[in-house]
Amino acid sequence: MTVDVRAGLERLAERLGGAGARLTEAQRLSGGASMETWAFGFEGKDGPESLILRRRSVPFDPENGRAISLQTEAALIQATGAKGARVPHVRHVCEEADGLGEAYVMVRVAGETLGRKITSDPRFDAVRPDLARQCGEVLVPIHATPPPPGLNLKVTDGQIEIERYEEIYRATGAERPILELAFQYLRKHVPPPVEPTLLHGDFRNGNIMFDPQIGVASVLDWELAHVGDPAEDMGWICTNSWRFGRPDRPVGGFGDYADLLAGYAAAGGRPIEVSRVRFWQMLGSLRWGVMCLGMYLSWRDGVTKSVERPMIGRRVSETEADLVVLLEEGL
């Protein structure tokens, strides 16, 4: 069934802006394989509103992969926002009557999400030295939010993640000695258990909206949220795959470990050792490598046809080049 999004947005304008509210703007911004983002606006009884619609364009399968539903995503954004996290303001969670499928609406804010702009655009030169500390700060209220009841978030830890990705790797049939060595090394270096917390799950440069004046404006893309080791969120933003050409700046290509950790501790987070972050960073490289292999397989097995997929398979060697250096340095 195809959904007429524009017609749905017109109905939504009236529902949110009051009778007679007219859609003034509706534009599809981007789309992954399964998710659409629309910018839209209307003139309502309380004045103009500029909003973002995030909707799933293919049916959600909770058994497939680890993504959460958009309703769950909206609930987590609201829960962490109530704790003071810099997250989008959810304006409306779509219902059956809205005719837009699984979707929610948030207030549009200005800013930049393109990773390479954050690491290299002169517009961010002034604020860049402060961003790693701010990233540490913004994680504290997220990790301090009790997971709202009834959401059935996945719970994981270092050991479980290694096993999960090794299982996926074995199923691909690929034989990559560097990935093998990373699995063996990480197994021997799993950090001691820690009190699990709510995690964003995809906290990296690219999923954070930055403002050239204030820095971190909003943490976006919550679909991989789960419960686990708070250092996981820190390790992922330190994974070199998300440093956009600036491997010399370990946090997102813009900052240093010490600032990230200091920002976290100063905002009241339980102090985290850099070795723990490095464990998750190395597992992050390994995880991204295995995910790249998986994307190639979806082409080989005829699930997707795009030329993008086999080429993503040739990005495994990026993670191998990173892993071999991390293995040499040690945790």
Binding site: G245, P247, V316, A321, D322, L323, V324, V325, E328
Partner: peptide, 27 residues
């Protein structure tokens, strides 16, 4: 072991993604 893997990683990235800047690359 690591020496062999370093050579393999370096040569493979030069084929697959020569513009990628791996961990440890100076600014």
């Amino acid at each position: 072991v690591l020496a062999a893997l370093q050579v393999m990683a370096r040569n493979q990235i030069a084929i697959d993604q020569p513009s990628y800047r791996p961990e440890g690359t100076p600014p």
